[in-house]
Write a protein that binds this DNA or RNA. Sequence first.
DNA 1: AACTAATCGAGACGGTACGTCCTGTCTTTGA
DNA 2: TCAAAGACAGGACGTACCGTCTCGATTAGTT
Lengths: 208, 208, 208, 208
Amino acid sequence: MAGFQKISRQQGPRPGRPRDPEADRAILQATLKLLTDQGYAGMSVERVASEAGVGKTTIYRRYASKEELAVAAVGILRDDFGPPPNTGNTRTDIIQIIVQNQVALEHGPGFAIIGALLVEERRNPALLELFRERIIRPRKDEAVMVLQRGVDRGEIRADVDLEVAVHAMVGAMFARHILGDLESIKRIEETVDIVWTGLATKPRLPTT
Amino acid sequence: MAGFQKISRQQGPRPGRPRDPEADRAILQATLKLLTDQGYAGMSVERVASEAGVGKTTIYRRYASKEELAVAAVGILRDDFGPPPNTGNTRTDIIQIIVQNQVALEHGPGFAIIGALLVEERRNPALLELFRERIIRPRKDEAVMVLQRGVDRGEIRADVDLEVAVHAMVGAMFARHILGDLESIKRIEETVDIVWTGLATKPRLPTT
Amino acid sequence: MAGFQKISRQQGPRPGRPRDPEADRAILQATLKLLTDQGYAGMSVERVASEAGVGKTTIYRRYASKEELAVAAVGILRDDFGPPPNTGNTRTDIIQIIVQNQVALEHGPGFAIIGALLVEERRNPALLELFRERIIRPRKDEAVMVLQRGVDRGEIRADVDLEVAVHAMVGAMFARHILGDLESIKRIEETVDIVWTGLATKPRLPTT
Amino acid sequence: MAGFQKISRQQGPRPGRPRDPEADRAILQATLKLLTDQGYAGMSVERVASEAGVGKTTIYRRYASKEELAVAAVGILRDDFGPPPNTGNTRTDIIQIIVQNQVALEHGPGFAIIGALLVEERRNPALLELFRERIIRPRKDEAVMVLQRGVDRGEIRADVDLEVAVHAMVGAMFARHILGDLESIKRIEETVDIVWTGLATKPRLPTT
DNA sequence: AACTAATCGAGACGGTACGTCCTGTCTTTGA
DNA sequence: TCAAAGACAGGACGTACCGTCTCGATTAGTT
């Protein structure tokens, strides 16, 4: 999985002509464009090559398959995100994170990529795993961390599984997409509020 | 969308040779088998035809595309479900529904199909819509109905959006699959309990 | 080697759509054109397909490889030849045959094809053998037959190996091509005359 | 055509690192091996490089193309030949030459190379010409020279074109290879005898 | 000893073609 | 009219070479 070697620490320059970083960039860019415009099924390695002004070899030298290429392309989206929000208000923070992710997913090839990975899951589970590691899990960790701050501040009970809470809040967004139900900031807030009640140390007031 | 005409309403026997119902069966069966064994990407209409001992034409006369075929195949799974549970205990009922769906999804081609539909979403949104209508929405409606019974019994507040509650509970399951996080009955119960607190008319007792 | 099935004797019409004879024709024609214009190395199956207005599959359904396609294409040249000459004069007949072959080889892809087959000989000897059977051997047999008539007429000795005589006469033509030596009718006649002396029943007069 | 500069006439040692003669050797050796084992089509510059433990650059610095490399590799075979035979008997000498060539061609990549050059003839005629100059023509000249000695001795008529005679004798060998007809010393002798009759000053005795 | 220049192995590059596979359509014969 | 068989156009896949290029490291002669 050459495309993903992270920090090749302390490994003197390998022999041979180094890879062209410009090609790296052009490939991922073209992939992302096609992915966004045409969806995963409509994107082809051949088109990516031609659009990026690059030989097919140059792509396959970096990524072993179309799937892997797509994953890598989505991977670069991550960097657009700033640091996790920290307004001092846990509820505000968690809403902001979810909205952020929702926006990224909805505008962009996010769902299409996830779809492709689910399709390939049986044949090539490593790809989905890779995507999790690189893209999804870091986000989840952010969300959990924000909730953890809530625990530290005494806003959130210490005896609940924060992961499960994140599953519910983030999953609601997935569910709405798959169900075709309307998504909106309001609904995200409603979702958070419902879950929040289950997390909060102070019971909400009984309905009058 | 030939595969889905359920009730050919009152249309005297059409001329010509009638369709072979055995073929219908064999096609869906073979599709389901390949879908389950190889995943969506590994299933091909050609293989289905040969496995079912049927001409490709016979498939395409019934389903307009590979996607539609897959959707129809998944559709037959639905019938395995009995009527929605009604134990008198809303919490028990909703847990049972979610577990039921979780099991069906995890041991079948469910996620692979959903993936394929997400992949195709941009080019062919009708398919995802079809799947929603036929498979997903009925289940959601069941869940909402169960919660509505809770409202009627006074267990659940009347001012919350029950759909949002369902999103959170069902979505958590999706989220765990996509995140690769462990799924279990225990976690499903935890999820329901957290959400339940947000729905219940009686506040939970403050932590001692 | 589907392209070469000869007489499928008495085999009731096979099921399924029959092969398009127009495609057969267009493929071989396009192949021959590219072969002649660009040589064997410059011809590509992809170009043949596009030039013939045909899918690549349609070609590969008939011929297992580029080589086989080329052989088949050259095969259709054979039909341009009329019956072997029979002027009553054996020497005239044999000259005519050789000239005929020389012309066909020199203005067509003949040498390029033979070259390709020699190149492939070690990996795929069947192809060269196929070419021999279909194209070369029939011609040799014609030449031998003409000489045999000479034997019958008493012009040619009965104790010489006529095949060897044909090798020498035809081979001289090959040799000149490979050596890059000038070829001409005059040289063909000289070749035949030299060999002829070795074949003739009547010794040539000693040089004065 | 760097590979063939024989005499770098009087050009004081060029600056820079001199070429490694060991590389020269290893390249041609590996080429010859692959050529013999796999045929021309099965040989690739990449494999030669790796087999010779040499960079591709090092090959392309010496030879401009795969074809040229192959030609050069075959060229080194030539040196295995001793001086042309001179037994005093012209017929014996010429047979020996032809047998020698036949053996060299049949065991070795000779025909495959000739094939490759015929394939490339239209696009790159210079290569075939190079091969003629370097490999084929010298041999033909040897054969003609041997026959010329026969003329000088009065064994062979002075009014025949000796080249044509060589074409016939050598060509018969080519013809047998291409036709797939059995080759043997006996047949070579028969060939020479037939041609010899056409060349000889003394007519052969009429058949009894 | 520093400089210049060509060589070396390694391997990336754009490009082209290969042969395979699949999709969705079309065209046969037979029921 | 439907069925089974299978041919059809089209297009993408991933592989293999070709001939070129760019690296850092040698290895000479020249200053």
